[in-house]
């Protein structure tokens, strides 16, 4: 499809370590269209960050082992691209926003210099021109007094301001794709909403495609068009945001949704999915979710279900989804 900005096929990441292999990502497929915001949602440790880093080709190999049948960014085939050429693409065509801006910014360099660097790297600008762009970029994400703030060190800014700096950094070259790895989890709830607004605004103004990573659905609800639900290294459900909210099909998604507290809905008590994610080195047989699943059967314990499409734009990996494929919705 010409309109696909990111196409990932069968992405696998493993970490060999003493006592076994951690299979962090077990063959995921992603398709993100132009201007679309896709969300990757799942509990802590399910492999979201590792997937993001693998797409950016930022994992250190070794120790990580990465495989993908296809990794295509717009018209660029990244599947077997050597590191030297990846350096020209990172920052310019694809960028990443990290979770904790405090640790993601170099503590001994002013934030302005850190943004200058990306302009100096990817366009033929003088230092002066780069700094002017930097100030503009900071103004765009709502940093007041951008000119003087550019000379601050990260620790001199508030958490929200730092996260804005990271957003400015990611959008600096207006890339084709932005990956935001839990961009707000390190922030206070009130600041979270502001930063998400900035992110959403930037994404829509520039028409950039985005992959937004989060561990619960409430964060992505206002922003994402499509949602990929990930569990223990595998995609278990894919659906448009609206449909997923109306009708989750995978028991895990159902649990995730039920654990989002909703003000309007006080009939159901706050539900928590029991137990924890399986240890990445000792995953259960069959469906990885079966020890925690209320619908699990013998079949679930023996064989891993495939990711089947339902309707046209939905996929689910479950033997007993909440609605069977043949049931046609009105």
């Amino acid at each position: 499809m010409a309109d696909t900005v990111l196409e990932v096929r069968n992405l696998k990441v493993a970490f060999p370590c003493s006592g076994g292999v951690i299979r962090a990502v077990e063959g995921i497929d992603l398709d993100i269209h132009r201007g679309e915001c896709a969300a990757l949602v799942g509990e802590s440790g399910c492999g979201k960050s590792v997937s993001a880093l693998a797409i950016m080709k930022l994992l250190n190999t070794p120790p990580a082992v990465c495989r993908a049948d296809k990794l295509q960014l717009d018209d660029l085939d990244l599947t077997h691209l050597p590191d030297r050429q990846m350096e020209r693409i990172r920052g310019k065509h694809m960028a990443m926003i990290f979770q904790d801006a405090m640790t993601a910014l170099n503590p001994v360099m002013t934030v302005g210099k850190q943004i200058d660097e990306i302009y100096l790297r990817h366009s033929r600008l003088s230092r002066r021109e780069a700094r002017q762009r930097t100030i503009k970029a900071l103004e765009l994400v709502g940093v007041p007094e951008a000119r003087s703030r550019a000379n601050s060190y990260p620790h001199q800014l508030s958490g929200g301001m730092r996260q804005r700096v990271l957003i400015a950094l990611a959008f600096a070259c207006v890339p084709k794709l932005i990956i935001a790895d839990e961009p707000t989890t390190a922030l206070d709830v009130t600041i979270q909403a502001q930063v998400l607004d900035v992110l959403k605004n930037m994404q829509q103004v520039h028409g950039v495609s985005a992959l937004l990573i989060a561990h619960d659905l409430s964060v992505v609800a206002n922003m994402a068009d499509t949602v990929y639900v990930m569990y223990s290294g595998k995609i278990v459900e894919r659906a448009a945001m609206q449909e997923l909210f109306v009708e989750p099909l995978h028991p895990y998604t159902h649990g995730l949704l039920a654990s989002v507290p909703r003000i309007s809905d006080d009939r159901q008590p706050f539900v928590q999915i029991p137990d924890a994610v399986p240890h990445p080195m000792r995953k259960p047989t069959g469906c990885y979710f079966h020890p925690r699943c209320p619908r699990s059967s013998d079949q679930c314990q023996q064989r891993m279900p495939r990711l089947e499409s339902l309707d046209h734009e939905r996929e689910v990996r479950c033997w007993h989804p909440l609605r069977q494929p043949h049931e046609v919705r009105s």
């Binding site: 590191d83 350096e87 020209r88 001994v108 790297r121």
Partner: peptide, 26 residues
């Protein structure tokens, strides 16, 4: 292994620049 070194690499800076400007200084 610090996050800001990954950020520096995510900006597309060449290895040598990352080492010199971000790693060694710290």
């Amino acid at each position: 292994n610090e996050d800001y070194v990954i950020t520096a690499r995510a900006k597309g800076l060449p290895q040598a620049t990352v080492l010199y400007k971000h790693v060694l200084r710290n």
